[in-house]
């Protein structure tokens, strides 16, 4: 594929969405696994250690650049797709019943993505900025665990995170299997497995994420 095709053809755009989507899906596994360390109930010791490793290891930091690049690409391509797809139907239907033929969330990836983007801005300002400040600003080891405890002591932040995770849930519900389809991986025998895996993945990831603010807010952790 020429670079031009990859970014400009309809199928090229689908591939970039799917590839970057996959990358983000993998990232979420790492993210949720590390964060789940808070549930070890050791006062955040393990969690802080792993977090410290992740923010200081140069391989991870290199991958981080890739992650952001992928995320930005995913967002830009998403916006381009949204625009082009909207332009493909200049006059809308007066009467339309899309619910008869497709799920609402498969049709709402742009909206869900936008919600996620807003959530992400908030999320990064809560945790990412602090980590970077700690990394470059001082020699005091950064206690991310405490930062979480503090952030999630406000109900409206917890509520915002719950909304963000719900958006993520539906985004993944479609995105996971959609990425396989876009890459051409649709096989009669494996398709049910992919769909089950997608559902399992989405539920596990989202339940774990949603438990985190709740656990802090309701003081379930030591």
């Amino acid at each position: 594929m020429t670079w031009k095709q990859l970014f400009t053809s309809s199928l090229g755009k689908k591939f970039t969405m799917a590839f970057t989507g996959f990358f983000l899906i993998l990232f979420l596994i790492v993210h949720v696994t590390i964060n789940a360390c808070i549930f070890l109930n050791d006062g955040g010791q393990t969690y802080n250690t792993v977090a410290h490793f992740m923010s200081h290891n140069w391989i991870v930091r290199f991958l981080e650049i890739g992650l952001f690049a992928g995320l930005i690409l995913h967002i830009i391509q998403g916006l381009v797709l949204w625009k082009q797809n909207r332009d493909a139907r200049p006059i809308k239907y007066y009467s339309n019943k899309p619910e008869k033929n497709s799920t609402w969330y498969s049709r709402s990836m742009g909206l869900l993505g936008t919600l996620l983007l807003l959530f992400l801005v908030m999320h990064l300002s809560h945790f990412y900025v602090g980590t970077k400040v700690a990394l470059y600003g001082g020699d005091q080891p950064h206690n991310l665990y405490n930062e979480m405890r503090e952030t999630f002591s406000y109900w409206w932040i917890v509520a915002a995170y719950i909304i963000g995770v719900i958006a993520l849930f539906w985004h993944l519900m479609h995105g996971f299997q959609s990425a396989f389809q876009s890459l051409g991986l649709n096989h009669k025998r494996y398709r049910p497995i992919i769909q089950a895996a997608g559902l399992g993945y989405t539920v596990i990831i989202c339940v774990l994420f949603i438990l985190m603010p709740l656990a802090f807010y309701f003081n379930w952790l030591a």
Partner: peptide
Amino acid sequence: GNCTNTYACEAECPKGISVANIARMNREYL
């Protein structure tokens, strides 16, 4: 426009053409 895998096309196709064909085209194109 560009496909976003809602599969409305398959549901509404009078001949029931499967979206597995779209996946095959994606593979072919790749």
